[in-house]
Amino acid sequence: MNDLTMRIDGKEVGAAEGMTVLTAARGAGIEIPTLCHHDSLEPYGGCRLCLVEVTERGWSRHVVACVYPAKDGLEVRTRTERIDRIRKGILELLLARAPNSPILRELGEEYGADPDRFEGEGSFCIHCGLCVRYCAEVKKAHAVGFVDRGVRREIAFIPEIATRVCESCKECFPLCPTSYLQAAWVLVKSLATPA
């Protein structure tokens, strides 16, 4: 099964073909922070927080561990000064969107991120896509999706489907790293079924 051997933070780690760096690292008990990863969903690479440094044939570069395939002889470093600096920047940008998210605050403290570095955007959604992907891949209900693009991108429930399936499911709620998803649901529910 373990036909590939990598070095992650100096530790020999076995991995199988088709695994990502993230799954190999976690299998060996090495923690890499993630926001958009979920074990039962396809790799997404949305939050970029699992960024690591890989060295291959003498060349090193930064990649995101959750989509980078495990390779034989790969050398991975999960925490360097530079990685910490990049993660701090990512967290500061995410905190501008969702300043009260407990998981973001916790990670922000760990990496010394300043929550007020960027002006708040107040959208509360960090576009991790967990709800959208969970609904599509696991539940196959497609009740929530992304609309628009760029700075206007947001999640949107399809009222016709949501009013039918969401009330009895709500499995995506605990996945949301902020509380935006619940808020969006309450809004669409009150619009679709006025009291």
Binding site: V132, A136, H142, A143, V144, G145, F146, V147, A156, I158, E160, I161
Partner: peptide
């Protein structure tokens, strides 16, 4: 095709 994808 899921309506979410069409809307996206």
């Amino acid at each position: 095709v899921p309506l979410t994808r069409v809307l996206h």
